[in-house]
Amino acid sequence: MSDRRPGHDQPDSRGRTGLHRTGLDLSGNPDVRVRDVEVTSDGWHVLRRTTFDYRGRDGEWTTQARETYDRGNGATVLLYDPIGRTLLLTRQFRFPAYVNGHSDGMLIESAAGLLDGDSPEDAIRREAAEELGVGIGELTHLFDLYMSPGSVTERVHFYAAPYVPADVAGGGGVEEEGEEIEPVVIGYDEALQLVADGRIVDGKTVILLQWAALTLFG
């Protein structure tokens, strides 16, 4: 039976169709059989409830259901000055952190953003220019990580790249999207201390700083 709601068989406000079919064709795991996909919210991003059969280690099949939040994939970059041993980060208000116990919601983070149809490399170059006013030259790909695999589908592509402080100009984010992003230059040693004392609490940024401790400034 055809469901004529927007985002299913009719394009929604972002031109999407087939939102209720994601996952039905999965076949990589013989112990999982997807039975049904229900879109429970299809605003800017998509929340689905998927029912599937799962075969456990004992060979028994059970029927389970999981909600997944699909906001697309993203990319992030650690911008570093190898001569001055500094990092170029962002500072911005994050309401989800604020409403969940962060004192003022102002988080120090690495530059990042959703791919929005671009390749990961193009996306992070775009975000670095928009947020920090930096044109990235050589990019080093580090790894791709699922940041919250229990409920969020997003896979984040991690990069590192050198920057020259004198070349930083502009930035601040995209005003039409409500972004107000402050570029922050922090010494590498200070950044590690900010992690230790709880002033840097963004997961992707902590991961990048740990990579830097092992690889970059060790």
Rank of each mutant, 00 (worst) to 15 (best):
R5L: 12
H8N: 09
H8Y: 14
D9R: 10
D9L: 11
S13H: 12
R14D: 13
R14I: 04
G15P: 09
G15D: 04
R16W: 06
H20A: 14
T22G: 10
L24C: 09
L26N: 13
G28Q: 05
D36W: 05
V37L: 08
T40L: 12
H45P: 00
L47F: 14
R48L: 07
T51K: 12
F52Y: 11
F52C: 01
R55K: 13
T68N: 05
Y69L: 07
G72Q: 09
G72Y: 09
N73I: 03
N73K: 04
G74C: 12
V77M: 01
L79V: 09
G84P: 00
R85W: 00
L89K: 08
F93M: 14
R94H: 06
G101D: 09
G105K: 14
M106F: 08
M106Q: 13
I108P: 06
A111T: 15
L115V: 14
D118I: 05
S119P: 03
D122M: 11
I124G: 09
R126V: 02
A128G: 06
E131H: 10
V134Y: 08
D144H: 12
G150S: 07
T153N: 07
T153L: 11
H157G: 04
H157Y: 10
Y159K: 07
G171K: 03
E175K: 15
G178S: 03
L192Q: 13
Q193P: 07
Q193I: 13
D197C: 07
I200M: 07
T205N: 06
A213R: 10
